[in-house]
Simulated assay, not measured.
Amino acid sequence: MAARGHDEADAAHWAEVFLPELTAAQLASLRRAGFELPKLQHLARTKYGRSLVVSVLVCFTDAYPQAAAAADIARAGEANRMITSRSAGEFEKALQAHGLSSAPAGAVPAQRAPQASERGPGGYPTTATRWWLGWFLVVLLALASLTLLAGVDVGFGVVLGAVWLIAGYALVVRRTVFGRTPVPARVRRSYLWASVALVIGAVGASNAWLIALGSQGVGRVDSESQLTGSHGTRYSQCSVVQPDGNTVDLRATGACPKPDGAPVTMVYVPGDAGSVWRPALGTKGDLEPLAGLWGVGTLVGCGLLVRAARR
């Protein structure tokens, strides 16, 4: 009974403040916009509330002859927040149904959200082609630097590979794969650990290449040289004569293990004079631990990148 009395008082006050009597069609229009008459009547009991109600009627009914101005739309939005449960997006749709918009004049309209057919795996705003092409590019260039280049020069390959993994995340994963939307934490974690595994594994890339392409044989020590590095540091470099007769610097710097002319076991690539693959002292078995590290690091790294791409 008390609630009914309040409603009657609100209705009476509506008339007292010269708010118009609404037709059935106008009431239906208000309901479609999310406004209920009893709540509007209660809102109109204050001077400020009445100004909001007038703006609601201007925007969503023909109770007033004037067209809705920007101030009316703003006040109607305030009324929507105060007495309805509708979101700002739903209110905007109601405005658009009446040919109105809360966007400022001259504002650039928001870009249309990509449709489902335009979204890549996981619903992100990119095509499936760009999604998989982006991940393929990341994996391809990571392997090119951390396996191929690191096989020739481990320092250069590791540094270049690390730089690419950082740049690939910023330029390819964030922009091409995820279309500048936030990258999920699970993908960031997978990418980080994949990068760590690939970089650590690259340390053994040259051993893996020598095992795969090289032969084991007995050559001899040629000579030891004292050289100056790019930073002015002095270091020793040992050269050997391979079993195929080519004289080549060893892959690693340091003193020769034996006197000049002494026989040494090495793994070398026949026919290569050291222009690409330099020999390493020891047997293929000696090279296997680091080669295994390369294999495990590469498999784990690529697996984590595939896992990130399948999310």
Rank of each mutant, 00 (worst) to 15 (best):
W209G: 09
K284Q: 14
S145E: 10
L210W: 02
V269S: 00
T176I: 14
T127A: 01
L293H: 01
A205M: 02
Q237E: 12
F18N: 15
L100D: 04
V152M: 10
D72L: 07
G285F: 03
T247R: 14
A70N: 06
G99A: 07
P109N: 10
G179A: 05
W135Y: 09
L305Q: 08
A88F: 09
G106W: 10
L30Y: 05
V139R: 00
A63F: 11
C59S: 12
R278T: 11
R32F: 05
R32S: 04
V177D: 01
L22R: 05
L171R: 05
A15V: 11
A24C: 08
Y191L: 03
Q216L: 06
G77P: 11
D286I: 03
Q115V: 05
A170L: 14
A88L: 14
V53I: 01
A212P: 00
A33G: 06
A12Y: 14
G217P: 13
R31F: 04
A68Y: 07
A71R: 08
A2D: 15
R186E: 09
L137C: 15
A194P: 06
A113P: 08
T127Y: 05
W131A: 02
A44H: 06
R130L: 12
T61F: 10
A212G: 11
V203L: 14
G303Q: 08
L304M: 09
D62Y: 08
P38R: 07
P114T: 07
Q216K: 06
Y124V: 14
V139G: 07
D244K: 01
R130E: 06
L57H: 08
E21C: 11
N207T: 01
Q115F: 13
Q237A: 15
F18E: 15
C238G: 06
L305S: 01
M1H: 11
D286M: 04
Y191G: 00
A212C: 03
L43R: 13
G122Q: 01
A97T: 04
A67T: 14
V248Y: 03
H6V: 11
L40F: 10
D62G: 12
F91I: 02
I83G: 06
Y64A: 09
T126Y: 03
E118C: 11
L198M: 06
Y191W: 08
Q26A: 09
G295V: 12
P263C: 02
G106R: 05
A12G: 15
Y169R: 12
R189C: 00
G261F: 09
G168M: 01
A113Y: 12
G219E: 00
A208W: 10
G261P: 04
L43Q: 13
P20K: 09
G232C: 12
G261D: 07
R175E: 05
F35Y: 06
G120M: 06
S195A: 11
F60K: 03
L143N: 12
A107W: 12
G232E: 02
T23V: 09
G274H: 10
Q111G: 14
V306R: 05
D244Y: 04
F136G: 11
L290A: 13
G219A: 00
Q242C: 01
G285S: 08
T233N: 15
A2E: 15
A162T: 13
D249K: 15
F35I: 00
P65A: 15
C59T: 10
P121N: 07
S101F: 06
V173F: 00
R220Y: 03
L22K: 09
A15S: 15
A142Q: 09
E16I: 08
K39T: 13
A308S: 09
E118A: 08
P270D: 02
G155W: 04
A273D: 15
R251M: 07
S117D: 14
